[in-house]
Write a protein that binds this DNA or RNA. Sequence first.
DNA 1: GCATAGTATCTCGCCCGGCGAGATACTCGC
DNA 2: GCGAGTATCTCGCCGGGCGAGATACTATGC
Lengths: 169, 169
Amino acid sequence: MTDEAGPDLRLVHQLRAITIELNLLGGEFAQRNRLHPTDLRALVCLLDAARAGTPATPGLVGAQLGLNSAGTTALLDRLERLGHVRRVRDTRDRRRVLLAVEERAVALGQAFFGPLISGIVETGQDFSEPELAAVRRFLGAVQGIVAEQRAAAPERPPGTPSPADPTAG
Amino acid sequence: MTDEAGPDLRLVHQLRAITIELNLLGGEFAQRNRLHPTDLRALVCLLDAARAGTPATPGLVGAQLGLNSAGTTALLDRLERLGHVRRVRDTRDRRRVLLAVEERAVALGQAFFGPLISGIVETGQDFSEPELAAVRRFLGAVQGIVAEQRAAAPERPPGTPSPADPTAG
DNA sequence: GCATAGTATCTCGCCCGGCGAGATACTCGC
DNA sequence: GCGAGTATCTCGCCGGGCGAGATACTATGC
């Protein structure tokens, strides 16, 4: 079984293991803080926007998470109820709602990412510059591959009827 | 904002980007094939078991995905209805159900992972052995960090009431 | 053999996240 | 001001997942 196609799959398996573990970690963390995985993803998204100086709006968040407007409203209701975010009417365009990230959301983000980040940064110190460069180059390539796959057409396995999604995005 | 804590976060961001993209890819792939992300994860799990020669059972799959028995049953119902898996009573211990993976599930798995795997393997050819070793070492370390975080205690952010989960795992 | 405990899976009723459709409130160009 | 366009919210529904309990089986002691 293992002696036929011998390309080196160790990297693939490591990548997969990391992804899986990271997802589980996120899920557990979310649950501990009484929120849905989606809510955590939304927070990440909000924090990113805050750091980038871009004012976050329901529309943006929804788009980034792939939710429709109803789902987005519900998501923000949850986040607001938990005090992670506050809706503020934009005074310039009063159709819009701006999302103000609360302290506690920032704290949550740090509690989640902080240890991971510092762990990874520390790990980096055990590597030489050329090694780090190689890692970055590799990860960049992987990123490209995944993005490419995502862009590539559906390539459905045999025997699957068309899902009838003319609008599929 | 960006000139105060300058540790090199490029690796962190790359890792995060890969994870996010991979999740989105999985989600899209799942949807195209009429299954829930959870179903896809279950398939992966089943295929792993099949390759490892371990007979998969509902209990195992459920445990690995963090579902309770009711959810697991529903999951397998869906998978069986779609023809990805078949339930077979274990003749030795007739309480147990063995999960036989169907051809189409294997095909699905290859359609999903095939391109990713070959892409990554090909990418690996642009790297020298020492470089690859560095990447593996780094990924291994990251794996360790994530696992460690998962094992570590809840470390809740300030102001959060205890979720009252004495059985939390 | 039979009663008891333990285990693997399934059934039932519920909760709640997400969707589609439509309502509402607003801005912009005429 | 009026109609078109846009951002968000409301309503009703679907379906995945949970908790509790039922069911079917194995293992053990008598």
